[in-house]
């Protein structure tokens, strides 16, 4: 689209663009220079602030944190999809006493911050149930109820976008409502919404880091442990860079998968003009902003 915004540049425009390109580069380099010199001047690049990377014990702690993060992600992702499917079926139900509670649950949980949702089992279990719930399950609870509700809306949007003829044809050959959903509508909806579903799973992965707020021993928490040690000069910025890089790589891989699938299904549509994929909403339903 951006190419439609401006003409094929002529000589004058080319010259102007070249000047702007140089100015832009200077601006960007200047910002980078200020940031790096600031980091350098305050000694963030000193060897002792990065030494910790070589310590085996610290590597083991970070690895343990990473595994904990991935564990929380895997459990929460699985449970969110299950809950999402359940709530989507509930919201699509023809019975009002099923539909209304599902709608209420989805509305309420989407309106609450994930941190608050994690606080419920974290601080509420003791007075209410007289036991404490392991932090892993507090995190999983918060992630699951929030992302399950969001996924329910994604599944529902996918089902609604399937052409009406599909459902009519299913009823015509005598399938029940449940059979129609299971055999005809959901497979198409999930396929169409797969990129959006994966984008939401990226949100689940990112949001595992919210567990840090309640002291869940995930990657960032293990990283913070290093910053308490004065022999490394309390390396907050080096740790943030390393931990951030790990998250960025993990999330980028997952996002890449989403774009791959999007591109693949996109080409499938082109090869099959007039196929079912016509009714699919385009991607400006956009990856929902994360919580």
């Amino acid at each position: 689209m951006s190419s439609v915004l401006f003409d094929e540049p002529g000589p004058a425009a080319k010259r102007r663009n070249a000047v702007l390109t140089v100015l832009g580069a200077v601006l960007v380099l200047f910002i980078a220079f200020v940031a790096v010199s600031r980091l350098h001047a305050s000694g963030q690049f000193e060897g002792r602030r990065w030494e910790w990377i070589e310590y085996e014990g610290i590597q083991r702690n970070l690895l343990r944190g990473l595994i904990t993060t991935l564990k929380a992600f895997a459990i929460a992702a699985f449970l969110s999809i299950v809950l999402g499917l359940g709530l989507a079926v509930g919201r699509l139900s023809t019975r009002a006493w099923v539909r209304w509670p599902s709608t209420a649950v989805v509305t309420v949980f989407r309106a609450l911050p994930v941190v608050v949702l994690m606080y419920f089992p974290y601080l509420g279990a003791k007075p209410l149930l007289d036991t404490s719930i392991p932090l892993l399950w507090c995190v999983v609870f918060g992630l699951t109820v929030y992302n399950g509700s969001v996924l329910a809306e994604i599944f529902r949007a996918g089902v609604v976008a399937v052409p009406k003829g599909q459902q009519e044809a299913a009823s015509a050959i005598g399938l029940t409502r449940a059979q129609t959903l299971r055999i005809v509508l959901f497979p198409q909806a999930v396929r169409a919404m797969l990129p959006t579903i994966i984008s939401q799973l990226v949100v689940v992965l990112k949001d595992t880091a919210l567990g840090f707020v309640i002291g869940f021993q995930e990657l960032l928490f293990e990283g913070q442990g290093i910053t308490d040690e004065s022999r490394f000069g309390r390396p907050i910025i080096p740790v943030a860079i390393v931990v951030g890089a790990v998250y960025v790589v993990l999330c980028s891989l997952l996002s890449l998968l989403a774009t791959r699938i999007e591109r693949r299904s996109g080409s499938a549509v082109r090869r099959r003009p007039g196929g079912f994929a016509n009714g699919i909403p385009d991607a400006d339903a956009a990856p929902l902003p994360s919580a």
Binding site: R38, L39, A41, S42, Q44, V202, K206, D207, T208, A209, L210, F212, V213, L220, G223, Q224, T227, R234, I236, I237, A240, I241, V243, G244, Y247, V248, C251, S252, S255, P287, S290
Partner: peptide, 20 residues
């Protein structure tokens, strides 16, 4: 889009005093 908000908070809120 790929960085958890918590990590960014950690970097900026705890890191700012470190770079004076």
């Amino acid at each position: 889009q790929n960085l958890p908000l918590t990590v960014l908070f950690f970097l900026i809120v705890f890191g700012a005093p470190k770079v004076d």
